[in-house]
Computed example of a mutant assay.
Amino acid sequence: MAHSETYAVIGGPEKRLLEPYISVGIIAFLRRWRRSVARRKALADLTIDQLRDIGHPDADRPRFEIDARLAAKLMSMR
């Protein structure tokens, strides 16, 4: 019986001590997530020239490399 009383006294305050840290972590995560979503939306609206003006690399956009001989051959087939 004494063991369960001791456990209840120790277990209660420990849980209350962790709750503020957990809620602060959740709030910080949600703020970072909101900022990243807003940043992605703002960058998606910019043109390639505007992205170059602000110094943002356009590495995430698809890029195709076509050999000059292939381009010439395709143009001649046209």
Rank of each mutant, 00 (worst) to 15 (best):
D67Q: 00
A68E: 00
R32H: 11
K41R: 13
K15I: 15
R61P: 00
T47L: 01
V37K: 04
R61E: 03
R40L: 13
F64I: 05
R35V: 02
G12Y: 08
Q50E: 09
R32K: 12
P20F: 05
R40H: 13
R31G: 14
A44R: 04
P13M: 12
L51R: 07
K15W: 14
R16V: 07
K15N: 10
P62Q: 05
L51I: 02
T47I: 01
S36C: 13
L46S: 08
L46E: 06
Y21F: 04
R52V: 10
S23I: 15
L18T: 05
R63T: 06
R52F: 03
D67E: 04
E14A: 13
A72E: 00
A28N: 06
P20K: 04
G55V: 01
H56S: 13
R52Q: 08
F29I: 15
R31W: 06
I26R: 08
A72Y: 00
R32A: 14
L18N: 09
P13G: 09
R34K: 11
R32D: 15
P20Y: 04
R16C: 12
H56A: 12
L17N: 09
G25R: 02
D58Y: 13
F29N: 15
I66Q: 05
F29G: 15
R34L: 08
A59P: 08
D60Q: 10
E65H: 12
A44H: 02
I48F: 13
F64D: 08
E19K: 11
P20E: 03
L70D: 02
S36T: 14
R39W: 06
S36N: 15
P57E: 01
R63P: 01
D67M: 00
L70W: 00
V24E: 09
R35A: 03
D60G: 08
A44L: 01
G25T: 05
I66E: 00
D53A: 08
A28D: 07
K15S: 11
Y21P: 06
R69P: 02
F64G: 03
K15A: 12
V37F: 04
R40M: 11
P13D: 10
A38P: 04
I26W: 11
S23T: 15
I66M: 02
R16E: 11
D60W: 12
G11P: 09
R69Y: 04
D53M: 09
A72F: 00
V37E: 07
I27Q: 05
L70P: 07
D67S: 04
L30T: 11
R63K: 13
R32G: 14
Q50A: 05
R40W: 09
L18Q: 12
I22V: 10
G12D: 10
P62M: 08
R32V: 15
F64C: 05
G12Q: 10
A72R: 00
L43E: 13
